[in-house]
């Protein structure tokens, strides 16, 4: 079972707030297959980011469990979470969140350096990855010397450089114009096909969502619809 499902979410609930209680996630059950390219949609405040942060073990749930590759992340120590985030997960946010003091290549190398890869090797791998996202000629540029779309490509290279089994993107094209959004989407789709990694993307863009394998619709912290797209 855990062979087909890379992510298994059971009764996941996240309650925010002291005093006024906000049920950002309310008993979510969801299984995601290895290599799936999945979209999470829903109105603002429906809990999309909250769900993604849970899968990315950036936050802890109020109740329920999340199994990544069969391991319950809610029972992990702080250190194990760090290692899991580094080895198994890749993050792309709406804002690129690149380290401003480092150039594109160094930013893309960072997850490798963190996992203890030698810097010469990290340089090779990160540079290949930057070529793959189409930024082979901008490696020495710092984030403030690159456009929004270019920075987002660096962020994608960084998310994928450690070859994670799961890539999560919270509105990765939310900050870009239609044209760059489309090319970023195409890039993610290509990487998904080539590397067989699982992609979970939160998006407001229905056209983009329509091109994924499956759409999860969240409303008030619950799954309102779970539909497979015909390829």
């Amino acid at each position: 079972m855990s062979d087909t499902y890379i992510i298994q979410i059971k009764d996941l609930t996240k309650i925010f707030g002291n005093g006024v209680e906000i049920r950002a996630l309310d008993g979510v059950n969801l299984n995601i297959e290895r290599g799936e390219f999945l979209a999470i949609v829903g109105p603002s405040g429906s809990g999309k980011s909250t769900l993604l942060n849970q899968i990315g073990i950036l936050d802890t749930p109020t109740s329920g469990t999340i199994l990544l590759d069969g391991v319950d992340v809610t029972k992990m120590s702080d250190k194990q979470r760090s290692i899991t985030r580094n080895r198994q997960l890749g993050f792309i946010f709406q804002y690129h969140h690149l380290l401003p003091d480092f150039n594109a290549l160094e930013n893309a190398m960072m997850p490798l350096l963190i996992s203890g890869v030698k810097s010469s090797r990290a340089r090779e791998v990160a540079s290949l990855m930057l070529h793959e996202v189409g930024l082979g000629d901008r490696m020495e540029h710092r984030p403030n010397q690159l456009s929004g779309g270019q920075n987002q490509r660096v962020a994608i290279a960084r998310a994928l450089v450690n070859n994670p089994s799961i890539v999560i993107g919270d509105e990765p094209t939310g900050n870009l114009d239609t044209k760059s959004s489309e090319s970023i989407y195409e890039l993610l789709r290509k990487l998904n096909r080539e590397h067989k990694q699982t992609f979970i993307l939160v998006t407001h863009d229905e056209r983009m969502a329509a091109k994924t394998d499956r759409i999860i619709r969240l409303v008030d912290g619950r799954i309102a619809a779970n539909s497979h797209n015909s390829v």
Binding site: G56, R85, F91, H97, L98, P100, I114, R158
Partner: peptide
């Protein structure tokens, strides 16, 4: 702060 958050997301442990 944001940078530190991103470093943590990339797997930098608190000690580091």
């Amino acid at each position: 702060t944001k940078e530190i958050g991103m470093l943590m997301a990339m797997g930098v442990p608190r000690r580091s």
